[in-house]
């Protein structure tokens, strides 16, 4: 059964390794960026907040592919010679960061007002209150949304192949061009993506149940 898929499986799995590596990079740095910016957004003075709002608003309204193309073409334009991976990775970190920022800001806003009032009434200042009371609780609330964003990021790394970064989707197209066995290969690739994403989607659903209540 599926002889072409069998003989090309090692090549595709190598592509899957690149997909996972690129996803991991984007998710880790995108989440870090989002957590930092999202926290700043909840505490910073108005002009900084406006700037962050604009960042979130703009990136959430533009397709990731357009951001990738912009990154891919614009780094050389400012004198930076980057390979397709680095360009895609940086573009995606900024893109995913906007989504995580929004999730973190939403989670911080969802921490009950009573907690903030209690902290203020025992004389905590703004920064310790943020560090000790709000952020630890908000991060719990943000787990499920951030997992869902990670899932989105993994699937979006497939568009890196359009810009020219070699990963699973790119490898699949190469194999199909060589063997013409489109159905077999793309079905195999769908299964590989499914095996990567399905456990994570289950984890996200679990996190939603486990972490989404507030005291």
């Amino acid at each position: 059964m599926f002889p072409v898929l069998q003989s090309n499986l090692p090549y595709l799995l190598q592509g899957a390794v690149y997909t996972v590596a690129l996803s991991a990079f984007v998710v880790v740095f995108g989440a870090l960026l989002g957590i930092v910016v999202g926290t700043i957004a909840s505490a910073a003075p108005a002009p900084v907040r406006w700037l962050i709002n604009a960042y979130v608003f703009v990136f959430r309204g533009v397709p990731v592919l357009v951001i990738m193309f912009l990154g891919f073409y614009s780094f050389p334009a400012v004198g930076l010679r980057l390979d397709a991976y680095t360009a895609v990775a940086i573009s995606m970190v900024v893109y995913i960061g906007a989504f995580v920022t929004e999730a973190v800001r939403g989670a911080i806003a969802a921490v009950p007002k009573g907690q903030v009032e209690a902290a203020m009434s025992i004389g905590m200042r703004r920064i310790p209150m943020l560090r000790e009371i709000i952020v630890p609780q908000a991060l719990r609330l943000a787990v499920a949304p951030v997992l869902n964003i990670s899932l989105m990021a993994i699937k979006q790394t497939s568009y890196a192949s359009i810009v020219g970064a070699w990963e699973l989707s790119f490898a699949a197209r190469e194999v199909v061009e060589r063997t013409l066995a489109a159905f077999e290969i793309f079905l195999g690739v769908m299964i590989i993506y499914f095996l990567i994403c399905y456990p994570l989607s289950k984890a996200a659903a679990l996190a939603e149940k486990r972490f989404s209540y507030v005291h």
């Binding site: 979006q156 197209r173 489109a182 793309f186 079905l187 769908m190 993506y193 994403c197």
Partner: peptide, 17 residues
């Protein structure tokens, strides 16, 4: 299946497979 696979691969499936 449709939520856990990239849209891009679904497009390839429809167009090439």
């Amino acid at each position: 299946v449709f939520r856990c696979t990239p849209l891009l691969v679904q497009i390839f499936m429809l167009y090439f497979a």
